[in-house]
Structure formats: structure tokens, C-alpha cells
Design a protein around this nucleic acid. Structure first.
Length: 930
RNA sequence: GGGCGGAUAGCUCAGCCGGGAGAGCAUCGGUUUUACAAGCCGAGGGUCACAGGUUCGAUCCCUGUUCCGCCCACCA
């Protein structure tokens, strides 16, 4: 045995940094056909926000993607994990605007160009954070092809897509009621609205009838919009009001006369049954207005103050003040009937959290219905498959009710809409600014000044092109030919509409094919209590803090820094101190990744369990030490010829090789079904529960046995190495760093030394190594050893004490055959077949075909032993009752499968035999005591 | 209002095309046995939410109920 060449514990930090930079420098992440001619494989990363930072959701999804990519790379074929970042229009602009605010200025003071320069500076400054963090996760994406959604080539793709859709009439400009964010002062799409129920009021207002015969009472949650009312509506069948339809009311505070009309939209049972109609400020009223050709009166300025077309006293008031004033004025005029508390849905911007206004503006839209048709069909036909499958319901539901997509944003950071207006307002649409002037000159017959549309496109417009724009589209590049359609998309359910659906539509439109064949939908990563992680809750965990560790004070500081609501800081601090009293230990990337995989069960959110991370850190250490053991026993020894000589394999070798084959098979199955939890469990159990717990222990008597021939030792050394080396390859997709580190030392000893485990081949089943007989024999040994250990433990015999063993039964020949293994692991002093009488004073265990006795006269606590036996008998009785009940049931015998009946019968036999043995043992003890 | 998911050991979760209930962590007991105390050995712990139905047999299939979560939706 040589000196250990590895330290006693695995130190993740030094290993990780070393290997990642090595991999990247050597270009191992780029596609290369280093094995067989397998089909190409490609995954597009969901591009993270360029100014963002890594969160648990990334760690989760990127682990899954990287595991799949690494496995495919080992299997062979050209493998590309396309990476990059997204400019995230509104989010990034808000971030920079907040910085400006802190400096006491704003984007309007700066002007558009200077502002954009500032955003670019910020992007250059912070844009590296997330990609550095991705590297820390071990993500093997191809950095040489990294893209940013505002790179010139991607911007060109965006303009090209816009032009093509425009020319087909699938993009149009129009004045519509849109969701308007008065704080950001931009339109947003329907998807960017989050509505939540909040407390409000229902105001009942009196609108005087024009003929002076009384009032009509209308109920509203937004009294301030009454300034823009252009009608009052009732239900067509509502007896109460039918006679008034066609008449007019006088709109209070304005004096305008507006009609009373009948429309199905009105629910006669709600409120008073009369609805004020404000077409410019409510989506339903807008529809009603369209049906009845009502005028649209916009009473708000873009920042939601009352506009100058409203009565003078209200002009310039913001929404809240206007409401107060109007309600007060109505009350004073005796026009306020009553006010009731009311729960209602308040729409807010998902970024700004500001209350949105339905607002009448000119915007650009994509006409989606024609695109949606094909996008629905490809999922129906199975050309795109969701995993788990039930997400297709969500997809269909949205796609079948899809509304036109508002793509223009009144912000500055983003892709400028490639439309220019001539002096007469004529639209020129072009993918290139130089060319547009030629177009205009051609159109007018002379050169003109053009003004480009000031708006930018919704970020998701460029994201929708990601799967092909990153590969070179609209140019027909080799990459595009090689990797489109991509194979798999891994993403969260929260962006199925935002992103997945739109990629499908755009991919089909521009590439004529699906952008990916499968979509693996992950759940959300939640904290230990199951809460959504958010900055304001202060329960965010930075994946890097789990990898590198963080002390409590730093964690508290991190969680309470830069808070939007500073009053929550105290609560967050105490919760953090309670949850992580010691801070977080450095667990390493591999442990985090392994945990992510093991939590990745289908169709569920995952709660991050730090205990699990710790357990997997321990698993890394276990693997490390197993390798240490193997290396110590092989590095300066002879380790047999290639493949070993199978004819002389010892039982442990035959067993572990056979088990390894089964692991390869089940692991492949789990990978193919995207069951990463199973992948983790299978390999964890094999390495720890079989390789370490049994095999390495069994191997010791062979390696250290003085009577074992050297040739046999060499074979075992060889098998030990081969098994470990294969296990490292199997583990590599989930634990890239530790496996590389160990593989570099282990692989050369079996002649597999190459540059990197990343390009080693993925293990394949070798059927010739399957050995059911060896598995049976090994199970016998394990059963026997465990039985003896249990006796020892239950009878409180010190583990160090070497025990004598007597045995009888028809399986005794197996015991004979594997006596060294059993004796070593059960720490026996001796064993022999029982020939004479069963010793009265002995501990007894009964196994199928084998009775074991540990005769220890004078040492055994007889009372304890008989209690132990009674308990075991009681248990057997319960099992026996169940089996016998089943076998006594004619229905069971008639209907159950024959082999099941046979199994049950065998079970009954075993149970009876076991019971008999124990009952006899109990009787002997009883005799002793008397 | 519509749709989806969940309820299994103290905790976090697997399992179930119907036939002996599993893992990790936690707990308890033993243990410095020559890779590993981040270890080793052993043990305890569950009317599989509730009520019906189908079946020889249900944690699993069907129906209903309760509770929890999410998504979508125009009730002023």
C-alpha cells in the first residue's frame, strides 16, 4: 500500500476553478465530432437578463441543461449548448433610470442618445456578472458563440423579421385601447399585466335624466373616469329600465348629454343594473362603444393626470386626487347615492407594480391568429412535445384564445422599430437605415427627410427569434443547417406564453420548422418553507453562496441591502438568523448540482432543502474517499491485463460488474425520460450503497489476504479501477468537477487516459458482464452478514468482539463457499456447521434455508433475547396472516396471475420456516430459564 | 367562472399501467474496525387527506368531499 495521493476530504473550491478554465481554454465546450456519427444535438439557453444575476431558478435549469449536454457530448455527435444574454428592455431601463434618479437626474434630461450610451456602459460593466456565475455552475455552454440580443447580427434579424411580417400584413399599427403604465409611460402587453384582488369601493352615482324626471343610478369602481363617459347602458331585457332606453342623461360635472342604451354586456343583477360607459378607459366599455358607435373621450394624460379636455377644476389632478375631488363634488351636489366596500381586481405592471390604465394610443401589433394556427398544430401533431405532457393544455388554452400582440414600447432601450415616416406620414419599413432613404426617394421622386418611429420593440420580440437568430438567420449558415431545429428547450412554466409560444410561432414562420422538439418545463425553486423566493421577502439564496459558503453576517447584510421597503429589514434579519444560525457552509458546485437534479421531479415546484445539499456534499466526499482507497491500493501495484481475466473473477468482482451494467441501463432510461431525480438516486445508491458499503469491504480480504495469489489480487484491482472509472463517467453529467479531478488519476490506470472526462465515451451496457448468479450469491452474503450484525446490535454485543457462529440448513454450502466474505464483514471469530444439538444458550436468526446461532454461554441476556424473538415472531405472524388470507381466498386463486400465486406460496413457505425456527429458539430459551 | 397540480414517515419528496409502503435529512442505540466521524453498524417511525364505488384484492382506477397551491378570465 502506498501513501495516499489525495487529501482526506474533498476541497471543491480549488478543483472547480482549475478545471473550468482548463475546459474553456481547450475549447471542449464547442461542438466537435470526437466520437461516432451520432445526430447533432442542440439546446438553446433561455438567455438571462444581461444585467441580472444568477438565482436558484437558473441553477436548477442550467444544471439540467448541462447534464443533458454533457451526457450527449460523451455519447458522441456534435453538441451545442448555445448561450447568451437578453437585453431585457424594460427591466434594464428601469434599473438605469433608478441610478439616474439617485444622481438627481432622469433620462429626459439626458436625452435619448446619452441615455442609451449610459445603458450600454452599464451593460458592459455588469453584463459579465451572470456569465461568470454561469461558469461557476460548471455550465459547458459554448462561450465562443455567445450572443447578446442587441448584437448587430441579432438586431438585423429583428429588423428583417419585422419587415417580413409587415409586408405580409401580420404587423400593423393602430389606435387601440392598450394596457398603459403611467409610471413607465409605455404600453405593455396583456401578459405583462398582473391583476390582483384588492380592497376598493363601489360608488353609486346619480345621473339626472335629461327630461328632468329623476335619476339613473350607476355603480362604478372608478368614479374619476365618469368625466369620459359617453353613455349609460342597461340590459336589453331589464324591465326596470327598458322604457328609458333611447333617452338621455346629463353627465354630472360636465353637463354633457349622453344616451341610455341597451347592451347584453350589462349584468342586471350587479349593482343598480346600470353601467356608465367610458370607452376610452375601460376594455369592456371600449367594446360596447364600438358596438354602439360611441365617441371615445380620453380624459387622461400619459402620466394619468386629468387632461385639459376635462372641466377646468379637475385638470392636472392625478388619478387619486381626481377621484377624491369628483366624489366630493358629486356628494355636494347630492348625486352620490351610496358607497359600498368592494373587492376588485387591480391590474398592475409586472415590472413597475404601478396601477395600469386602459389607454387609447397608437401602437404596433402582431396579428397572431394566423401564426397561432400552425403553432397549435405542431403541438397537436406531436412535433413538439411538452414534458410533463399536461402543459400542452395550458399552451392550447392560451393559443386558442390568443389576442393580437402589442409589440411597441415607449421606452428607449431596445430594438428601435424599423419604420420611418415621410413628411406626409407615409410608412417606410426597411431592415437597413441607408436603404430606407433610397426607398423614400423612389417613392416621392425626390430626396426627403424621414423620421424614425421613436418606439422600441417588446423584448420578447427578439427573444422569439433566439433559436435561429443566434445561429445566423437570416443568413443560411452551416450552424443553422446543423442545429436547427434544436432538440430541447428547458424553461419555466411562467414563460410558456411570453417565450415558448412565440418562439414556436416565429420558428414556424421564418424557418418553416419547429424551433425545438421537446420542451421540458421545470417547476419553481422555493425556499425551505415553500415560499417563492423574492428580494422583498428576503428569502433569496444565491447559488454561489451555497457553492462557496457565506457567513451569517454577510448573508444578513446581503439580504437587507438595497431594499425597496426598508421596514422589512428587521424581520428578514431575524428570519435569516433563525434559518442559518451558522451561515452557509461551502458545499461546492457538484453538491448543489446533484441536489438540483435529485429535486427535479416532474410537474412540481421544488423546495430547496439545505439538508439535502449537505447530504450530497457528503456524497462527494464519500466518492472522494472511495477513490482515495482505490488509488492507494492500485497506484503502485500491478493491476492485471486489459479487461481483466473474467474466468478468474471473484464473486465481489462478478457482482459489482453485473450491478454496474444494470446501473448503466437504468440510468440511461432515467435520462431518456428526463427523470433526473431517478438519475441521482440510481447513481447515489450504486456508489454509496453498493460500491462503497459492500464491494470495497469485500475486496479487502482479497487485497490484503496473505493466501490469495497475486494474479487474483491483480484482477480485483483491475475490476475495482474499472468500476470506479465507469462510475465517474456516469456521474460526470451531474458532478463535472469532482469526476474530472478523480478521473484524471483513475483513468490512466485502466488505460483510458485522455485529455478530459468530458470527451470520454458514455458507458455502454456490456451484456457479457450481466451475472444473475453472482447477484444471487452476493445477496445471500449480504443477507447473512446483515442478520449477524443485527443480532449483534440488538443484543448489544460490542462491534469489536469476534463472534463464533454455528449454522445449519440446506443453504449452508453457500456459507461455506463465501465464508471469507461473511466472516470479515460480520467480524466472526470462527464458524462451523452445526452437527450435534442446538446449543441452548445462543442467539438465533433464521434466514431462508439457513439458521444461525451465536453460542455465547453466560454472556447473553436471556430476557432480552426472548423479547427479541417474541417481537420477531409477532411480526412474522402478521405477514403470515396476510399471505394465508390471500391464499385461502378462492377469488385470488382464480383471478391472480399464476406466477403471483406461486410467489405467494413460496412466501408462505419461507415465513413458516422462519417462524418455526424462531419458535423453537424461544422454546429452548424458555427451557433454559426453567 | 374555467383549467391544472398537490395531500404518502417528524421534514423534503419518490413510488403506484392494482397484488409485500421507499429514499435523503432528522431521531434513537452502538462504534476512533487499517478510504471516509462530512464516516461505520443497527433500530424505531406511516388506518398512503376523507367518504363512497369497481375488483378476489385499492396508496394506486372511478365518483364525490375537504384543504392547499398555481394559471387563465371583461362583471361595472
Amino acid at each position: 500500500m502506498s501513501e495516499p495521493s489525495l487529501p482526506k476530504t474533498y476541497d471543491s473550491s480549488s478543483v472547480e476553478r482549475r478545471w473550468y478554465s482548463c475546459w474553456e481554454e481547450k475549447g471542449y465546450f464547442s461542438p466537435s465530432n470526437h466520437h461516432a456519427d451520432l445526430p447533432n444535438y442542440c439546446i438553446m439557453i433561455p438567455p438571462p437578463n444581461v444585467t441580472g444575476s444568477l438565482h436558484m431558478g437558473h441553477a436548477f435549469q442550467d444544471t439540467i441543461m448541462d447534464a443533458l449536454i454533457r451526457r450527449r457530448r460523451m455519447q458522441g455527435g456534435q453538441v451545442l449548448w448555445q448561450t447568451g444574454t437578453d437585453h431585457a428592455g424594460i427591466a434594464t431601463q428601469m434599473l438605469v433610470e433608478r441610478q439616474l434618479e439617485a444622481l438627481g437626474t432622469n433620462r429626459h434630461d439626458l436625452g435619448r442618445d446619452a441615455f442609451l450610451e449610459r445603458v450600454w456602459t452599464w451593460k458592459r460593466h455588469s453584463g459579465g456578472t451572470i456569465v461568470r456565475q454561469l461558469r461557476r455552475l460548471g455550465a459547458s455552454c459554448d462561450w465562443s458563440r455567445e450572443r447578446f440580443t442587441m448584437n448587430p447580427d441579432l438586431s438585423f434579424a429583428v429588423r428583417e423579421a419585422f419587415v417580413r411580417l409587415y409586408n405580409e400584413g401580420l404587423i400593423y399599427r393602430g389606435k387601440r385601447l392598450v394596457n398603459w403604465d403611467p409610471v413607465l409611460q409605455t404600453a405593455v402587453s396583456d401578459l405583462e399585466v398582473v391583476s390582483e384582488e384588492e380592497n376598493g369601493f363601489l360608488w353609486h352615482l346619480r345621473y339626472p335624466l335629461a327630461n328632468g324626471s329623476g335619476f339613473l343610478i350607476v355603480a362604478t369602481t372608478r368614479p374619476e373616469t365618469m368625466l369620459g363617459d359617453t353613455a349609460v347602458a342597461v340590459h336589453p331585457q331589464d324591465e326596470r329600465y327598458l322604457h328609458l332606453v333611447g333617452q338621455e342623461v346629463i353627465l354630472p360635472l360636465t353637463g354633457r348629454r349622453i344616451p341610455i342604451l341597451a347592451d347584453e354586456y350589462v349584468d342586471p343583477l350587479f349593482g343598480s343594473g346600470c353601467v356608465k360607459i367610458t370607452p376610452a378607459h375601460d376594455f369592456n366599455d371600449y367594446e360596447v362603444g364600438q358596438r354602439h358607435h360611441l365617441p371615445q373621450i380620453n380624459i387622461f394624460t400619459p402620466d394619468a393626470h386629468i387632461a385639459s379636455n376635462a372641466p377646468e377644476p379637475y385638470q392636472g389632478l392625478d388619478r387619486v386626487a381626481a377621484r377624491k375631488r369628483i366624489v366630493a363634488d358629486l356628494e355636494q351636489a347630492g348625486l352620490l347615492d351610496k358607497v359600498e366596500p368592494h373587492r376588485l381586481m387591480i391590474p398592475r405592471g409586472d415590472r413597475s407594480k404601478a396601477i395600469l390604465e386602459p389607454y387609447l394610443t397608437d401602437q404596433w401589433f402582431v396579428k397572431v391568429a394566423p401564426l397561432a394556427e400552425d403553432a397549435i398544430r405542431v403541438v397537436e401533431e406531436g412535433r413538439i412535445r411538452f414534458i410533463p405532457a399536461n402543459w400542452d393544455k395550458t399552451y392550447f388554452e392560451w393559443m386558442r384564445n390568443i389576442q393580437d400582440w402589442c409589440i411597441s414600447r415607449q421606452i428607449w432601450w431596445g430594438h428601435r422599430i424599423p419604420v420611418w415616416y415621410g413628411p406626409d406620414g407615409h410608412q417606410f419599413v426597411c431592415n437597413c437605415e441607408e436603404k430606407v432613404y433610397e426607398l423614400a426617394a423612389e417613392h416621392y421622386g425626390y430626396e426627403v427627410e424621414l423620421i424614425q418611429d421613436p418606439d422600441v420593440l417588446d423584448t420578447w420580440f427578439s427573444s422569439a427569434l433566439w433559436p435561429f437568430a443566434t445561429l445566423g438567420w437570416p443568413k443560411q449558415t452551416p450552424d443553422l443547417a446543423a442545429f436547427y431545429p434544436t432538440d430541447l428547450l428547458v424553461t419555466g412554466f411562467d414563460i410558456i406564453f411570453f417565450w415558448v409560444a412565440r418562439m414556436i410561432m416565429m420558428g414556424l414562420k421564418f424557418m418553416g420548422d419547429v424551433p425545438f422538439k421537446e420542451v421540458y418545463i421545470t417547476g419553481l425553486v422555493r425556499d425551505g418553507e415553500g415560499n417563492k423566493m423574492s428580494k422583498s421577502k428576503g428569502n433569496i439564496l444565491d447559488p454561489l453562496d451555497i457553492i462557496d459558503g457565506i457567513d451569517l453576517e454577510a448573508l444578513v447584510a446581503k439580504r437587507t441591502m438595497d431594499m425597496m421597503q426598508p421596514h422589512l429589514a428587521k424581520k428578514i434579519e431575524s428570519a435569516t438568523r433563525k434559518e442559518f444560525p451558522q451561515g452557509i457552509s461551502p458545499f461546492g458546485t457538484d453538491a448543489l448540482r446533484f441536489t438540483m437534479a435529485s429535486l427535479a421531479t416532474q410537474g412540481r415546484d421544488v423546495k430547496l432543502d439545505m439538508g439535502r445539499v449537505e447530504g450530497n456534499r457528503n456524497f462527494c466526499n464519500k466518492l472522494w474517499n472511495a477513490a482515495r482507497f482505490v488509488l492507494v491500493n492500485t497506484e503502485s501495484e500491478l493491476c492485471g491485463a486489459h479487461e481483466g481475466e473474467r474466468s478468474v473473477l471473484a464473486l465481489p468482482d462478478r457482482w459489482i460488474l453485473s450491478r454496474l451494467q444494470r446501473v448503466i441501463t437504468t440510468l440511461d432510461g432515467a435520462f431518456d425520460r428526463y427523470r433526473f431525480d431517478e438519475v441521482a438516486t440510481i447513481v447515489y445508491h450504486f456508489v454509496w450503497g453498493e460500491f462503497c458499503d459492500w464491494y470495497l469491504e469485500w475486496v479487502k480480504p482479497i487485497l490484503y489476504g496473505t493466501t490469495i495469489p497475486e494474479t487474483e489480487k491483480q484482477v480485483t484491482r483491475r475490476v475495482m479501477l474499472e468500476t470506479l472509472e465507469t462510475a465517474l463517467r456516469l456521474l460526470h453529467p451531474l458532478m463535472p468537477f469532482i469526476t474530472e479531478e478523480l478521473w484524471q488519476k483513475v483513468a490512466p490506470l485502466v488505460g483510458r487516459g485522455q485529455e478530459t472526462i468530458m470527451r470520454a465515451s458514455w458507458p455502454r451496457l456490456d451484456e457479457s458482464l450481466l451475472d444473475p448468479e453472482a447477484e444471487m450469491e452476493a445477496e445471500f452474503v449480504m443477507r447473512t452478514v446483515t442478520a449477524i450484525r443485527t443480532m449483534r446490535s440488538e443484543m448489544e454485543i460490542p462491534p469489536a468482539k469476534r463472534l463464533p457462529l454455528l449454522a445449519m440448513g440446506e443453504e449452508i454450502f453457500r456459507l461455506q463457499r463465501h465464508e471469507t466474505l461473511v466472516m470479515t464483514l460480520a467480524r466472526l471469530e470462527s464458524w462451523q456447521p452445526l452437527t450435534g444439538e442446538i446449543p441452548q444458550e445462543a442467539i438465533t436468526a433464521v434466514l431462508p434455508g439457513l439458521q444461525l446461532f451465536i453460542p455465547l454461554a453466560g454472556v447473553i441476556d436471556l430476557t432480552a433475547e426472548s423479547a427479541r424473538l417474541e417481537k420477531a415472531i409477532a411480526r412474522l405472524d402478521a405477514d403470515l396472516a396476510r399471505v394465508m388470507g390471500k391464499l385461502a381466498n378462492p377469488g385470488f386463486l382464480a383471478n391472480a396471475k399464476p406466477d403471483l400465486v406461486a410467489t405467494e406460496q413460496a412466501k408462505e413457505h419461507d415465513l413458516r420456516e422462519k417462524r418455526l425456527g424462531l419458535v423453537e429458539a424461544a422454546a429452548r430459551l424458555q427451557k433454559m430459564k426453567n
